[in-house]
Simulated assay, not measured.
Amino acid sequence: MTFNLETYISRLKACRDYFAKLYSVSDLIDALLFSDLAISKKRLPDKLPKLELSDSMIIEIQDFLSKEIRPGMSELEIQQKVRPAEELDGLLHDYRDYLIEKYGMFAYISKEWVRDLLKFLNGRPTLEIMAGNGFLTAGIRELKKGYPIKATDNFDWQVMNHPLSPVTKVVKMEASAAIEYYLKDIEVVLLAWSPQHSNCDWLILNYLRVNKFFEHGGQLIVIGEKNGATNSKKFWKQAELSAAKNLNKNWSRFDLIEDQVFIVE
């Protein structure tokens, strides 16, 4: 089935009802529905499991369908019984597309992960650049009122069919201008899901180096898929990265995109 924003959740709920007695399957669907509910209410969602049907789930579904399909059924009737299983597989893979189109959420920010991030930041003043609709900064502000963090974005990416408002205060500012303006007051820079088609991440990295940000103990936290769906090739080639163990423990890698959390220092 083709991804459809307007019918996505209703189709997911229909699959939930159809497989209600297959608890491993219905629990997986519930994880998505609860996640969507939290995000729709501007709250941090829980960490997501891998959004795929495991071998054991597939066997359960096959056993279930074998009881639903009876001798003498027409081809159309059989297809109607089988279709929810085929549709569910597609819906699981489409969840990231749904989050992007519905909420403008590119990097999935969970409650568990933000707790880890706050421990890592340890009160240090922070700037988020290319913050999008501000989900990362909003999560920090939700769990730690008054945390010293600024969020900025130029909102050039907002070319969707429906307007999307930031979920927290995000200052409209180019990333390079934000770095220059706030640099003297911050110790950490956050950069989540920088676009592939722009070298601004590489320019920012070099600006931080020239201004001795790292030499003075500053850190750049990058969330993305190395040499994949995010960030420029120049950035991945030139950044000296280390995967942060404490920040990847609860990072939700729920689909085929292998994004993770890196530290540049």
Rank of each mutant, 00 (worst) to 15 (best):
M1H: 14
T7Y: 05
Y8F: 15
I9V: 12
R11G: 11
Y18E: 15
F19R: 11
D27S: 14
L33M: 12
K42I: 08
K42S: 10
R43H: 08
D46M: 05
L48H: 13
L48P: 13
L48R: 09
K50L: 09
L51D: 13
L51W: 14
E52Y: 13
S54W: 10
S56D: 15
I58E: 11
I58A: 06
I59M: 09
E60D: 15
Q62W: 05
F64L: 10
F64R: 10
F64Q: 14
E68P: 15
E68W: 13
R70L: 07
M73W: 12
M73A: 06
M73Q: 12
S74E: 14
S74K: 15
E75I: 10
E77K: 15
I78Y: 03
Q79N: 09
Q80F: 11
K81L: 12
V82K: 15
P84K: 12
E86W: 07
L88H: 08
L88W: 07
L99C: 10
Y103R: 10
F106Y: 12
I109L: 08
W113V: 00
W113H: 04
V114S: 01
R115T: 00
R115A: 04
K119Q: 14
L121R: 00
P125D: 10
L127Y: 00
I129D: 01
N133T: 03
A138G: 03
G139K: 04
R141H: 10
E142S: 07
E142V: 02
L143N: 04
G146T: 01
G146R: 04
K150E: 02
A151Y: 01
D153C: 13
N154D: 15
W157L: 03
V159W: 15
N161P: 12
N161A: 13
N161F: 09
H162M: 06
S165Q: 08
P166Q: 02
V167Q: 09
M173T: 11
A177P: 05
A178D: 09
L183Y: 12
K184N: 12
D185R: 08
I186L: 04
L190W: 06
A192H: 00
S194D: 07
Q196E: 09
Q196M: 09
H197A: 05
D201V: 02
W202Y: 08
L208A: 08
K212C: 00
K212Y: 06
F213V: 00
H216Q: 08
H216E: 05
I223Y: 02
K226L: 09
K226T: 06
T230P: 05
T230I: 01
N231A: 03
W236V: 10
W236T: 11
K237M: 08
K237G: 03
A239V: 10
L241N: 00
S242L: 02
S242I: 04
N246K: 02
N246Y: 01
L247A: 05
N250Q: 04
S252H: 03
I257R: 09
V261I: 07
F262H: 02
F262G: 02
V264P: 00
E265T: 03
